[in-house]
Design a protein around this nucleic acid. Structure first.
Length: 276
DNA sequence: AGGCAGGCTTTTA
DNA sequence: TAAAAGCCTGCC
């Protein structure tokens, strides 16, 4: 089908944003996008048109939600004011096209536990290995094989040897225990939806290997709480460099997380050294 | 009590 | 060789 939209939607910006680790750019420039047991191949045609290898019906009931198409990002982005916050205006303008995906919560949680103290290529590497070893095998519409991200039970079912092959290092035990807690029902991800942000952060930090940063990433990327504001080494630098007098949270509430994402991607892609 | 140093696996640049 | 979308433990 062909999707037409006037709102922000850049596949490249999203793929390079650091919020998801399994989008793949294909030879012809289209992107392969996995979500649970389904996959999408989407190609940007220009002029706000996109080609998707799914039916209108599947788009409406699945991919539209995943891509968060009901939210008007251009309108939110306009909160960045050129005069009062020139850096943010520049960052949001440069990174126009980013959206906060509605990813699978379990995949987001595990992915961001893995992400700690590592760069993005290394994170992608571990996640891909986990999918190959514990996920289910599928073929996309072009006949290429791909592996789903394992659910809690599948991940928990991995042998120590198989999990150690995924190069998790000291995070091995974190992943092991989190998968076990979610799998047996001791930690209920669905229950998180009922909690306010503060309580939700605390609950997530009760998991071994989850601190404030990973918990914040889970809120923003796994639970789509757009006000969650993960502070990592990059954002720390930005806050020091660009906001010595404090970050103006009031100006961006309740979308601080989206603006964090604009800053993060912008700073990483301009001042960063590990561009892809 | 709460803030800080040191250690942790492995990959990347 | 240092740094990487950090967290845990022990110490003061």
């Amino acid at each position: 089908m062909i999707l037409k939209t006037k709102d922000d939607l850049s596949l490249k910006k999203i793929a390079d944003s650091g919020q998801c680790f399994r989008w793949k750019k294909l030879e012809d420039g289209a992107y392969f996008v996995p979500y649970k047991e389904r996959s999408l191949i989407i190609n940007e045609l220009g002029s706000g048109e996109y080609e998707l290898d799914c039916s209108e019906d599947e788009y409406k009931h699945l991919w539209s939600d995943y891509l968060d198409m009901d939210v008007n990002y251009a309108k939110i982005r306009a909160l960045a004011d050129k005069k009062s916050d020139p850096f943010m205006y520049e960052a949001a303008s440069a990174q126009r096209g980013i959206r906060i995906l509605r990813q699978d919560p379990f995949e987001a949680l595990i992915s961001f536990i893995i992400s700690q103290n590592r760069n993005i290529p290394a994170i992608k590497n571990s996640i891909e290995l986990i999918c190959e070893r514990a996920g289910k095998t599928y073929k996309d519409s072009r006949g290429n094989v791909w592996y789903s991200f394992p659910d809690a039970s599948e991940l928990n079912g991995m042998s120590d040897d198989a999990l150690k092959e995924c190069r998790l290092g000291y995070r091995f035990e974190y992943i092991r225990r989190t998968a076990a807690a979610v799998s047996c029902g001791e930690f209920d991800l669905r229950e998180l939806r009922l909690l306010d942000d503060e309580t939700c952060l605390a609950k997530l930090q009760s998991l071994h290997g989850v601190g404030l940063k990973v918990a914040s990433c889970m809120l923003l990327y796994g639970l789509h709480r757009m006000d969650a504001f993960p502070v990592d080494v990059w954002v720390k630098r930005i806050l020091t460099d660009k906001y010595p007098d404090g970050f103006p949270f009031e100006a961006y509430t309740p979308y601080c997380g989206l603006f964090q994402q604009y800053m993060f991607a912008y700073y990483r892609n301009t001042s960063g050294t590990d561009k892809e």
